[in-house]
Design a protein around this nucleic acid. Sequence first.
DNA 1: GTGGAATCGGAACCTGAGTTCCGATTCCGC
DNA 2: GCGGAATCGGAACTCAGGTTCCGATTCCAC
Lengths: 193, 193
Amino acid sequence: MSMTEERPQRADARRNREAILRAARHIFAKDGSQAQMDDVAKRAKVGVGTVYRHFPTKEALFEALAVDKFDRLARFADEAMEIEDPWDSVVTFLKQAAAMHASDRALSEVFRDHGDFMVGTAQDCGLTDLGDRLVQRAQAAGVLRKDIRGSDLGMICCSLGDLGAVPVWSWERMLDIVLDGLRPDGTQSELSA
Amino acid sequence: MSMTEERPQRADARRNREAILRAARHIFAKDGSQAQMDDVAKRAKVGVGTVYRHFPTKEALFEALAVDKFDRLARFADEAMEIEDPWDSVVTFLKQAAAMHASDRALSEVFRDHGDFMVGTAQDCGLTDLGDRLVQRAQAAGVLRKDIRGSDLGMICCSLGDLGAVPVWSWERMLDIVLDGLRPDGTQSELSA
DNA sequence: GTGGAATCGGAACCTGAGTTCCGATTCCGC
DNA sequence: GCGGAATCGGAACTCAGGTTCCGATTCCAC
């Protein structure tokens, strides 16, 4: 079934592919999905045609990068699980994820504009499961309110995502408020579905 | 200095202007700033040329609507000040503002993409002051943590804004969490700047 | 009712950005 | 080295969507 055979590419092709990915990562992080293919090509020191040979469409390039990002998020979650203190591990993960959002405009846009794609990708790279585990561990230790679900971590990231765009506000401050809302103690309302 | 004299417009012109605004409100709420001028014209049952006579540019039309929205937000804040219970009044305002975001894609985009414009407009229509008053009243009554500023209300709205785009998540749930983070009691961290 | 000024409508124009195409160039097995 | 196949580069094409233009139409003062 697999159409993508591992045919050996020519050396220059492989080199260019890497250059394109590196350039695209930079340009998309800066300009979001509005970034232009010409700019990517220019930064990769390559013609536009070359970009299109490696990625048939702008959307394809964008997705390739997005999958990368989710893998990185999954790695963050993995590392966070290593932290002994369960609360710290949730906080650390959220901080890293949010910082990543803040430095990458494209990531926020994926979260906002491609909800279904995002859910699928998070599932595939194990991020969904890792999120659940992070949450359950903290709840078992009694340091996280019981009515939080793993998917709430994604929701929180998404909501912090676009704060980076407005210089007046800081996602760090917002995250602090949200974190206090996640604690098990204190007067609390009942969360809506 | 004022160039905008109140010259009486012809009846059909005034009628068309209203139709265009009504149509634009609907189309922009649905499609955000990606909305197309042709669609606005079609919905207003008017030619594109007519739209452009009333609003010299797409941007101008967009801004006219945005100012409207901020006036409405200011009215919400005003009404919220009438509520006796200071905590309720903050909650009510946030709920109304967030609901407005959820039903209006363009509003979220203004918050995200035109930060400075937004800050200026909020100032002009009195929303900034009203927010400060809402916050201070609640703090004086001891029902809102002391380290919250009026501008945090805007930040919260902004962060809730784009949750509406992803159907998996609900801004109501997120707002519940945030509200618990705003309460004065319970274990709390120190907010970052 | 009539004249002319204001307004309308929408085809045509223009620009920007994604994509294609093909001659030039580079790589690699012999 | 040589030959040809894979790859490159970037000018040119395409298409979508904002904006303009001007003949047709509508309104209002007289």
